[in-house]
Amino acid sequence: MTPTPPATAALAVGDAPGPGGTARAAQPRRRQVARGLFRSPAFLAGALVLLFWVVDAIFWPFLAPQDPQKVFPEILQGPSAAHLLGTDNLGRDVLSRLLAGASTVLTVAPAATALGLLGGVALGLVTGYYRGLVDDVAMRVVDAFLAFPLVILAVLVLTTLGPSELNVIILIGVTFTPLVARTVRSAVLAQRDLDYVAAARLQGESGPRIMVAEILPNVLGPIIVEGTVRLGYAIFTSATLSFLSLGIQQPSPDWGLTISLGQANLQVAPWIVLFPALALATLVVAVNLVADGLSQAVKA
């Protein structure tokens, strides 16, 4: 075990919630967080919009007025009673494709986020708990990663591996891993010198057990916040990759892909791209408002 300067330890004790985070202490704290959240109009608005798109992503077959792939004879028509948001260049119903298109981005982004969280939490726990050489090396790699624009890396990797949803998930998940690890690591650093960890160690608990059973429950707050923030970035990135034709392929009604293909008819049928763009805008803004609300509530 590496010695820690006393200043850090004192700071950590001051910042931490109660040692051990006993069940009795956790209950009112959780209620307090929930109350804070429900008082924030920005969080509530974000949560409602997000809920709407999640429900839509699951139940769109019941919500969409038409089959999103069905071709009607009237092509490139503006909004009308028969097609509320118009039709696209093949005569497909824009509203139905809009409602069906939420499901791809809301599958790829959460899957990528989950992958990044899994790797990042594991890496963060290990680097934060053991510190030393592993820590130094890992953090230098993270810095090198940060120096590289994610979109460029994605273009490089996906054009060589081939565009697919699975590749997008893996790519985003892998790039998120060091970023999540960094957050988890700093949360673990604040915990590792507290009394309950020392007690567990003296009791003879193994390193992995202390990390998972003792420290992990006490750093869940920052992990949840990091998860929502990452989800926002995952939606941003996966939609962008769809737009660059590096993700899901035709004839999916995916929003990013639809916007990319719709550019060809921008002048004659702007509604094809406008509505998916507005839908994506509401989704990403909603996720960010939820993430911000959560981080404010956890900090308070």
Binding site: T240, V284, V285
Partner: peptide, 18 residues
Amino acid sequence: GLSLIALPEFVAGTILLV
């Protein structure tokens, strides 16, 4: 600021173009 950060460039760009 928070909302604008979240907006993918192609989304903002498409709305502006239209």
